[in-house]
Design a protein around this nucleic acid. Structure first.
Ligand SMILES: [Mn+2]
Ligand SMILES: [Mn+2]
Ligand SMILES: [Zn+2]
Ligand SMILES: [Zn+2]
Lengths: 145, 145
DNA sequence: AGGCATAATGATACGAGGTCTCGATAGTAG
DNA sequence: CTACTATCGAGACCTCGTATCATTATGCCT
């Protein structure tokens, strides 16, 4: 049995469900466990494949729930495909390695001020932004020529 | 007949086709004209609807071609839907108004240096990034309370 | 522990958005 | 004009995600 890569996820999920009057079902725990078991990012379809006994709609519903609760963040790959990842809560961005796929959190987003200034020049009032950064992680740099 | 909103597009497109040994077909020009006629951004399906006599696959093929040539840029809306827009060539971002949909180009992207510094701290080598900025354009600010 | 109200599930159909296939058509070089 | 072949159009197909709805099972109340 593979060790949980994100051990706190299960407990936090259960706690949040209880707080918000949502039911702790066996299926929900199955989905959360399948996610906690993973390192790195994953697609909804991958979870569906890993849990053939769980309905596809249910997998999508629960991933959405986990994301709304802040336990999962969206990772947009360069090819446009949407992945999810257990992650820091709150606003942040990702450094996505185009070689191995690793997506590490880039905390302390300090571009909001820069954006407000640059956009303000055109009279635009910034309320939010979406940013993904692509490149090579440390490991992949040393492996590549 | 509506005036072309982007008059240079047609000629530039034809020139690029000739340069790269691709054929100047009637269908290609129809698609390019339908696009040049628009202000703002649009979806592939909107072009399909505007050109019912042109095959859907062909519309998608030619939009992709125009985008690869640099005449169109992708605009990712907050809801995740992909639009296209006649645009400045080369790397740039957008200020997308969440009220009226206006997407104006944000030129002179000066976040690359900032990103290199912040990412470099984690040993990550930045090669590119994707950024969309959301908020209210000048007009929509004055209309709103 | 047993019963109830209803949240959650899963099978399935549906829809948007986009690609693939392949025979037919039409640019273009010569 | 002809031949070559890039491009086209129709439709099948695919992925990702949501809507519907009969069935199940959770949490609470007694
Ligand atoms: Mn994250
Ligand atoms: Mn643009
Ligand atoms: Zn890597
Ligand atoms: Zn606006």
């Amino acid at each position: 049995m593979p060790a949980a890569t994100h051990p706190p996820l299960l407990d936090s999920f259960i706690a949040h469900l209880a707080e918000s009057d949502q039911r702790v079902t066996a299926t929900r725990l199955q989905v959360a466990k399948a996610i906690a078991r993973r390192g790195g990012h994953f697609t909804a379809e991958e979870i569906c494949a890993a849990l053939p006994s769980v309905g596809r709609a249910t997998v999508y519903r629960n991933i959405k729930l986990l994301a709304e609760m802040g336990f999962l963040c969206r990772v947009l790959l360069e090819d446009g495909s949407l992945h999810y990842q257990v992650s820091h809560r709150g606003h942040h961005h990702h450094l996505v390695c185009t070689a191995c796929g690793l997506a590490q959190d880039l905390l302390g987003c300090d571009i909001q001020d820069l954006l407000r200034t640059r956009a303000g020049d055109s009279g635009f009032a910034v309320s939010g932004h979406w940013l993904e950064v692509y490149g090579l992680c440390r490991d992949c740099q040393s492996k590549a020529p």
